[in-house]
Structures are given as C-alpha cells and as structure tokens.
Simulated assay, not measured.
Amino acid sequence: MSWRQARRSSRVTFNPNSDISGTNVKRAGRGRTTGIAVGGGGIGLVLIFLIAQLGGVDLSGFLGGTQVAEPGAITGQSLEGCKTGADANANVDCRMAGAAASLDPYWAGAFGSLGARASYHRPGFSLFSDSASTGCGAATSATGPFYCPSDETIYIDTSFFGQLSSQFGARGGPLAELYIVAHEWGHHIQNLEGTFNTVDRSQTGPTSGTVRIELQADCYAGSWVGAAANVRDRGGNRLLNPPTEEQIRDALDAAAAVGDDRIQQMGGGQVHSEAWTHGSSDQRQRWFLEGYRGGATACNTFDTDRL
C-alpha cells in the first residue's frame, strides 16, 4: 500500500455499512430575527463573535441583553441523501449527520452517570452557509461553530473546517471535525445539567469559570471519542471504527489550534493568560484526553485546582 493509500485509509472514520439515517440534522435556509439587543453595543457583539470563533458556546444570551428569534424563521431541509457510514465518509454534511447518529445514543446512555436531575434529550443541529437566524440572534460564518442555549441548537457552517487548517494551522481530518461537533454537543449537556446557571462566567483567565466550562466541553468530547467505537446503530452495527493514533492526533491538534494562547500568538501579540476564555492549547488537549481515557464522569473541571 502506498503512502497516499495509507493516508486515505486512515481518514475513513465511519463503518461504511452503518445506518446514519433518521437524525435531526438540517441544512438551514436564510432566516431573520425580530431584533437583538446585546449589552455593550457593537463592542459586545464583536466580543461575542470572537469568543464563539474559538470553538465554544455562543454567549449572546449571557451578556445582559435579550434577543428574540422570529417563530419559524429557522428553516431547513433534512439531509435525505445521508443514509450510511459510507455517505458520512464521503460528504461533510453527511459526516455531521453521522456524528449526531453516534453522539445521541452515547449521551442517552452516559448522561445518567453525571447525576443531573434533568433527563437527556438531543439538541437541534443546523448546518448553514454565510448566515443564519438563531435563538441567540444573527450568526455569520465568522461566528464559527457554536451552541445556542436559548433554542438548544448546535449551529455549524461547515466551511469552518477548512478554516481550521488554513487559518488556525490544524492538520484537519474527519475526527478533528467530529471533535468540534462533540465539543458543542458537550455544551448542550452542560445546559441540561444547569451548568450555565450555576457557574460564574463573568471572569476570564486560566482558572476562571468560563474556561472551566470550555474545558469540560472538551472533556465531554473526548469521552465520546473514547466510547464511540462501541456505539451501535439501530441494526446493531458499529457506527464508527476505532480511532487510529493518527486520528487522535488530528483531534488533539484541532484542540490545540483553538487554544487561547495559540490564537493570541497568531494575532501577533503576546500571551496574556488573564484574558483567556477557553483555555490554553495544553489545557484543551489535557482535558480531551481526560475524557477519552476516563469517560464522562472524569470531566469535573470545577472541583480541581489542576486545569
């Protein structure tokens, strides 16, 4: 087998014969909102987009303002052509459907171990291009992938995966893309747990509540990756093949690429840890591995001094 063949084989993630149909992932149409009022005016809005661009939760509902999505404004079409793991390996939209097909049953089983009083239900999942209307206000491609607590929906412009390599310098690859989805799904788990209502998100810095939220979402993503090869479709078929060492490196590289210190350096500035909102590259990689090795119950980032 040639190097090119080996590299191509290593990028195959889903079991080609698995069933990924029946998810709620949609490709959204253009919508509009009735209004958005964010504390801090234009500076606050820019801050929201910068924070979200780092790969984390959308914070527009947390900055003292209100926003109302027009009922029915978010429209979308189901991904009817996404039927099998082979489709997920070949097409990025179908890969998102495949991620949902695996993440949903994983968390349906794992959520109870976290001791939350709420019951689990899956998030909405909307793919968009250029712009989208959400329960947290208007979003553009510049926003990056994010989770909106107001409408419990993950929003992803899949062009971000190309930017992850071209702008952030990540290696890319299917598992790197799936890590991004799993991180946002982790924010949904936190929302169900009530974390957003109990953690102080007003501070920044390497041990702040804001960073602890993001690192836990990285850990939750790792916990799914560690168990994903055991998740089955409705017919009992394995959905994802066991990840290779190369694919794990791809996911870790994606986590490092969106570390606060890396992004500050990319901007040509010095590293100022007091401004961190998501954690350093090392922190994000460490907590991904904590979840990968220890499962979802290993992801308590709030009761530790070692971040």
Rank of each mutant, 00 (worst) to 15 (best):
G268L: 05
M1F: 13
F111N: 03
T13V: 12
V12A: 02
K83H: 07
Q264E: 14
S102R: 07
F168G: 01
A6I: 07
R238E: 08
A108C: 07
A227P: 12
L59M: 12
S150Q: 08
A254H: 02
S2I: 11
T153I: 10
T140I: 05
R238W: 10
K26Q: 10
E177G: 01
A28S: 14
C148D: 02
R238D: 13
V57P: 05
D104Q: 10
R238T: 14
Y147D: 14
Y120G: 08
E193K: 13
L63Y: 04
S280W: 03
T13C: 13
P145T: 06
G85F: 00
Y155R: 10
A255G: 10
A254T: 07
F288A: 09
A37W: 13
L79Y: 01
A257K: 02
G173V: 00
F14Q: 03
F302S: 06
V271K: 05
M96D: 10
P149Y: 06
F14N: 03
A251Y: 04
Q270E: 14
P105G: 02
S21I: 04
V38R: 15
E214P: 00
A256K: 13
E177I: 01
I156G: 09
G112N: 15
P123N: 15
D157P: 04
R122F: 10
T84L: 00
E177C: 00
V46N: 08
E246P: 11
D218L: 02
R11F: 04
F288N: 08
R212W: 06
G236M: 05
Q163V: 15
E245P: 03
R306Y: 12
A52K: 02
G194C: 09
F302T: 13
D233R: 07
L175W: 00
P105N: 08
I213D: 01
H183C: 00
S60Y: 04
L307M: 15
P149V: 08
S280E: 08
T140A: 12
S2C: 11
L178T: 01
L192A: 14
A116E: 11
L54I: 04
N89C: 00
G76I: 00
R117P: 11
Q247V: 01
W185Y: 09
